[in-house]
Design a protein around this nucleic acid. Structure first.
Lengths: 192, 192, 192, 192
DNA sequence: TATGAATGAGCGTTCATTCAT
DNA sequence: TATGAATGAACGCTCATTCAT
């Protein structure tokens, strides 16, 4: 086979993306290093120049994807001061936070490995919770709301979305709309 | 090895329990049928008289445990008519719904396979959501509350707990207390 | 399960027949003792009261079936003195020698385990060869024919049929007809 | 263990030959992949780089050996025009068509797995029949013979040899001699 | 005689990982 | 940096056979 040298960072990224796509399509355990190498048209051994093991790759990939999603979702936060209601309105949800990632487009829509789906969702949630908690505290301090347990509240705000989000019998936009509507409703009740 | 015949139903249950314990301790993929057999002091082949495959055992076990938990949690429901507030107060949570199950005692407390933990939690949540949704609808019909989207609300009530529940830096009873307190608070705001 | 006692000889025969049917349908190696027991609606352990091992059963069954077929084919021989030509005309071939055996009906017609098919054919051929050899010697002695190497001739007469017999693109009766016609033709040339 | 890389084509052939030898010595089912690997002093997993399954290896090997044998037997055919009698005289038989193949030398001589022997013989016969049929038709067309059913005749010529060939009580050369003598005798009778 | 739960050895196959080139 | 043949340890699963009842 022809030998193609690439920029290491780029190669690494290529591996992560190919792997995630396959992990999502077939599941982690059912995706072999050989599958990934075949897909990339590259020798199996090359993999071990970039990752010490399959498991590390998996963690790295999940982490990277979760981070990307969180970055997307929080992209509106730091630009200016907003009320919670505005944030709820404007913040992209899990679903909307997808863009160019070829496989990400599928992940909250159709079938695919539930395993990865869940794992990624949980990773995203655990990253979002402290961020939301801070938002709630800030709102409390601004006198905008009166929430007695911001940590618990953040848990409900973040993880509470999962039930609707994972319900694939509801159309995609509908899910987002209802989540936002519900959060808005609750929020109003917590405003002074 | 000595040959000990047992009642098939009992043997099957014994397999489920041993398997779940090991799955929880080591993870699904890292627990081999051989491990389970060794733990039971039984021939490996015996397993296949009771389950056609490891995967089926897994599904069966998760399903059984989820069902048990849900039964526990909903045990107070059918006895009499109660207000939502009473239900929230009295309903056992994930955590409290543990009793005799040798391994269940550990699962929401200490370490162990996140994988099984999550999988079980999700299974329980997906079973609880429609039940809670019905409770909310009933309360609406009784004129007790005014919740515009009971399905979304149920999602937040059920899945929303996960963030707190999974936070092992908080002591166990504390977690339950805070969840109940938060739910009660929100609920009050939705009462007419 | 209900316990049904049967005449041992009958049970043994029942096992042979069930086994042969399954061997034919699925192949020897792919048929398990458990399959046979299930098919007979009988406990697995029962098998070992009648046969010391699966392999012995197989040999016994092949032998019995081959013997039956040979008996069929040679049934016309001992009744009276006949010329070779008459014998060829009247002798049932492999194919025609089938009767009541439910599975035998299929064996030389449609699909099924080539393995058993071949094994049985070979067993039948090896039993037929010395018989045919004797017929040829007798004919020589009667002055009816002049065949220099009756053993070789018998080999060609018996095994030679296989090519046509196994050719399932030719209709069943056609195969028999052509074999008999060819043998008759050759035979005529060997008559003085 | 030392790591010895070889040319893939050569390795594949090495596997085929080792496997065939073991299949012949012990039978197909009783030869495990592990046996083959041990014999080759190679890791078991290596096998699966070359063959997707044991069964495919078997078919490949039988096919290859049958083809080789047929090529040997038909090697004299295309060089020039010959009469059937000359062909019979000169054509190498099954037995003579063996040469360098280490295990082939044994196969038509001594004991060994009847199973492989038969399977190979049948494969060779089924390949030879149409070739012989064509030879007979050509002879008919040349006016050399008058054979009414060349297909049936070919079947007898090819498969008919099996009885003698498989009779291991007769010395090897003797078997060949008698087959050729018999075929010659019959052939003469079919000449005009 | 019959049952069927239990045994235990072994098999085909997979795959993360290594290493000579 | 890249290759891909080779390793070797497991693993899920099957099944002929045994034996307590």
């Amino acid at each position: 086979m022809m030998r193609i040298s690439k920029d290491p960072a780029q190669r690494k990224q290529e591996i992560i993306e190919t792997a995630m796509r396959l992990f999502y399509e077939k599941g982690y355990e059912k995706t072999s290093i050989s599958d990934i190498a075949k897909e990339m048209q590259v020798a199996q051994g090359l993999f071990y120049r970039y990752f010490p093991s399959k498991e590390i790759l998996f963690e790295t990939a999940i982490e990277q994807y979760a981070r990307k999603q969180v970055a997307q979702m929080t992209s509106i936060l730091n630009t200016s001061h907003k009320t919670l209601l505005q944030i709820v309105e404007q913040m992209p949800t899990f679903i909307e936070a997808e863009q160019e990632d070829s496989y990400m487009k599928k992940i909250f829509h159709g079938a695919g490995s539930q395993e990865i789906h869940m794992r990624l969702s949980m990773s995203i949630c655990s990253k979002m919770q402290p961020i939301v908690e801070q938002l709630l505290q800030d709102a409390n301090e601004r006198g905008e709301t009166q929430i007695s347990d911001p940590e618990a509240a953040a848990s409900f705000c973040v993880y509470g979305q999962l039930g609707i989000l994972l319900d694939q019998s509801i159309p995609r936009e509908e899910r987002v709309r209802r989540i936002k509507k519900f959060l808005t409703e609750v929020l109003r009740k917590f405003q002074k």
